Simulated scan of single mutants.
Amino acid sequence: MSDGGITPEQAERVVAIAMDLAREGDTAQLLEFVEHGLPVDVTDADANTLLMLAAYHGHADTVRALLDRGADPDLRNARDQSPIAGALFKGADEVVAVLREAGADLDAGTPTARDAATLFGRRHLIAD
């Protein structure tokens, strides 16, 4: 994000608003932030990306839109969790499908998506 003369506090607030939009699945408003220079893989203090939060909260359309704009499906947060494992944990089947289509790594993170799928009885979603 170019600073455009904004303070660190203002930049932090922009990121916080964008993270909330990702959690809420407000794709249109979130994409406005990205189109105006917010990096698609920006992270919060816990290293969650916009994609991670959208995936965890079950917003497949938002996940798809972020992936279409270059979001990395494999960036893990500070707890070494991947977006696809988070979606499996939450039972967000459509998000899992979108991330699979994008080539998400099923063996990345702790737990891996494969482990999460087994643990939560969702193995069929990631079967090769």
Score class of each variant (00 low, 15 high):
L99D: 03
A102Q: 07
Q29C: 13
Q81F: 07
T27F: 01
Q81H: 13
M19A: 03
L30R: 08
G58M: 04
T62L: 04
Q81S: 14
E24N: 10
G5W: 04
A65W: 01
A60C: 14
L21P: 00
A102L: 11
R64E: 15
P73C: 07
V15C: 10
L30C: 11
D68M: 05
E101I: 04
A55N: 05
V14R: 07
L30W: 08
Q81V: 08
L30I: 14
A116G: 00
V40Q: 09
L53S: 06
D61E: 15
L53W: 04
A116I: 07
D74M: 05
I84S: 01
F89L: 12
A71I: 05
A11G: 05
G70M: 09
H36V: 03
A117N: 06
G58Y: 08
R114S: 08
A78K: 07
M1I: 07
T112I: 10
M52T: 15
R122D: 08
A11N: 03
I84Y: 02
L66Y: 06
D61Q: 14
T49W: 06
A55L: 08
A92G: 02
T49P: 01
L88F: 12
V14P: 01
T112A: 09
T7M: 03
D46F: 10
D3F: 11
D105I: 01
N77D: 15
G37W: 10
G4C: 13
D26E: 15
L53T: 03
D61H: 05
A92T: 02
R100P: 00
D44R: 06
D80Y: 10
T110F: 09
A16S: 15
D61R: 11
D44S: 09
D93G: 02
P73K: 08
S2R: 13
S2L: 13
M52P: 01
A102E: 11
Q10L: 12
V63Y: 06
D80V: 07
A97V: 03
D26P: 04
